[in-house]
Nucleic acid binder design. Structure first.
Length: 567
RNA sequence: UGGGGAAUAGUGUAACGGUAGCACAAGUGACUCUGGAUCACUUUGUCGGGGUUCGAAUCCCUGUUCCCCAGCCA
């Protein structure tokens, strides 16, 4: 029996938060955080987390969400990533306001906490080597054994820890460990390392430090310092929660946030780990982190996806604990849904086929009125030039049309969108190859604008551009990055690259687009009628050479028919 | 018997002892100057086995499967 005020239909995390609010657990406050490590670009999986954390803050009165860079490992982190991450979060539509933090800002405090732990007899300096520590840790089924350094006196530990900070030791010589339980069935509790020596320049603190806190130590305390109420992370950290809680309890801090774990997002036909994505970037399998085929936020942005579409997607997939694989078709659905409402329609011919209108006067040209967006008439109309010689799509003509093919064929009449009805009268082929070179058609002057006064119907409407007036453009067609829905499903982790899709990028260099596109701005999005959504590439498009990225195709029932017939 | 999680249409996610719902995908039809969009309709599901109950996806027992953990990564 559901109580009338029970929260239902929301995810389990929001349910917990609503309950906490009701019981006044955190004094009515809601503070979340998004804590990326600046060691790579953000991807759609991060978008899920961003929407969750910032979304929760937005939904609750007085709620806040901090952006905190978890920069505790100077070996892997770079400022370039920090800037990229900030840009991507903003682009997605979220704002941390004044709440921008860095774990490195807490290094001094964290050091003091570590000293306090030593004083409490709850941490010690261990001088075992990495290999020895591993040996002493035991295995999943066998308990570990105590380090011989576990019994060092507090004074000795303090002295050693100070000298670690002072730079007296080489990397790896010592490590500070929490003194918990080497027999714990949870390996994270077997005296985890909390500080290690790294004589590496940090991108923010420079050479100030040569010891750096580990994630487990830094994260919970950073949350606590910032007054976070709900620390939301992914399920692989579930095993770390006892340690998270142990540190905050042992140190007796005022603020003890609740860690809650949810399942990370997996998307079909792509990979979702910064390590793997970095590998693709470094091996030049893609042009960079913002390659439009990448599942990164910057890649999707360059591809033409909108923040709204991504947010809608994140909302729709929900939040739960079970491992799952979301169909990339769902993401594409939200992209289409959003773009359908807002994208300007234009005509573009990707694979041009020359068409001569035999009975159209030489040298004549006229401007025909076209609707910019039938979904939104406030977007108005534009004039598109028409003339005797046109280009249509090669796919829109078949010399021997199968039964369900409605487009142009010898003797058949179709409509040129917003223009005239035309009838194909002859086909000119290359004598050597047999390839169709051009079509000759006649037009019906009575059908100007696209409708016939006698009311006769045509089976289809095709798009076109005027040969003389259209401009050349390069168009990049993208397909899934991988050929396999789950490229990481193999036994061998490294095998994912076997499934890289060799056809994920097809570059078309002789496309013809409407003249109105001559001054199209970087990133602006269009629907090329009957083809899909495209945007002006921000990287390579110039005034001299227009470059478009295909964001996503239109739903294509003809393609479906063809597939069903096995052609 | 290492420990920690999770199992609901093809996919994802609701239902918190009371009609298994929603979205995508798939299919059918209507409409259409985009084979687009839109609209209507349809197919498909509670991991297995026991039990409690008038009634179980939900509670109990039991089995199975999948994921995570042996970094001085996060």
């Amino acid at each position: 029996m559901a109580s009338p005020d029970s929260v239902s239909g929301v995810d389990f995390i929001r349910e917990i938060i609503a309950e906490d609010l009701k019981t006044n657990k955190h004094g009515g406050k809601v503070a979340t955080r998004f804590p990326p490590e600046p060691n790579g670009y953000l991807h759609i999986g991060h978008a899920k987390s961003i929407c969750l954390n910032f979304g929760i803050a937005l939904e609750n009165k007085g709620g806040v969400c901090h952006l905190r860079f978890d920069d505790t490992n100077p070996c892997k982190e770079e400022v370039e990533y920090i800037e990229a991450i900030k840009r991507d979060v903003l682009w997605l539509g979220f704002d941390w306001g004044k709440h921008l933090y860095y774990t490195s800002d807490y290094f001094e405090k964290l050091y003091e906490y570590a000293v306090q732990l030593i004083h409490q007899g709850k941490a010690y300096v261990c001088s075992l080597s990495t290999d020895e520590i591993r040996e002493y840790r035991g295995t999943l089924t066998q308990s570990g054994k105590d380090s011989p350094y576990r019994t060092r006196s507090i004074e000795e530990n303090i002295n050693l820890f100070k000298r670690m900070r002072g730079g007296e030791f080489e990397d790896g010589a010592h490590v500070l460990r929490a003194k918990i339980d080497m027999a714990s069935p949870n390996l994270n509790m077997r005296d985890p390392a909390i500080y290690r020596i790294r004589r590496t320049k940090h991108h923010r603190t420079g050479d100030t430090w040569c010891i750096y806190p580990m994630y487990d130590f830094a994260h919970c305390l950073s949350d606590s310092i910032e007054g976070i109420t709900h620390s939301i992370c992914t399920t692989e950290f579930e095993n770390h929660r006892p340690l998270y809680d142990w540190i905050l309890e042992t140190l007796d801090v005022d603020c003890h946030p609740q860690q809650i774990e949810f399942a990370r997002l997996n998307l079909s036909y792509t990979v979702m780990s910064k390590r793997k994505l970095l590998e693709l970037v470094e091996e030049k399998q893609v042009s960079g982190w913002d390659d439009p085929r990448m599942p990164t936020i910057s890649g999707m942005k360059r591809r033409g996806y909108t923040p709204e579409a991504i947010r809608n997607f994140c909302e729709r997939i929900g939040v739960a604990k079970r491992e799952s694989m979301v169909d990339i078709a769902l993401l594409e659905h939200f992209v289409r849904e959003d773009l359908n409402k807002r994208a300007l329609r234009v005509m573009a011919v990707l694979h041009p086929l020359k068409v001569v209108i035999d009975n159209y006067p030489d040298g004549k040209e006229e401007d025909l009125e076209c609707i910019n967006n039938p979904e939104d008439t406030t977007m108005g109309t534009r004039k598109v030039p028409f003339s005797k010689i046109l280009y249509i799509e090669q796919d829109d003509f078949l010399e021997e049309p199968p039964k369900k093919f409605f487009r142009l064929a010898p003797g058949r009449e179709v409509r040129l969108r917003y223009a005239y009805f035309i009838t194909c009268v002859s086909v000119i082929k290359d004598e050597a190859t047999g390839k169709i070179k051009e079509l000759h058609c006649t037009y019906d002057p009575e059908t100007r604008g696209g409708s016939a006064p006698d009311g006769r119907k045509v089976q289809s409407t095709i798009h076109w551009v005027s040969a003389e007036h259209s401009i050349e453009a390069e168009v990049r067609l993208y397909d899934h990055l991988f050929t396999k829905a789950d490229p990481c499903g193999e036994k061998d982790e490294a095998d994912f690259k076997k499934f890289l899709n060799p056809d994920s990028l097809e570059t078309l260099t002789s496309c013809r687009v409407e003249p109105c596109l001559a001054n199209a701005k970087h990133g602006s999005r269009y629907q090329f009628e009957r083809l899909g959504y495209f945007c002006v590439d921000t990287g390579d498009s110039t005034g001299k050479k227009l470059v478009f990225n295909r964001t996503v195709t239109l739903r294509d029932t003809w393609a479906k028919v063809q597939k069903a017939e096995g052609t």
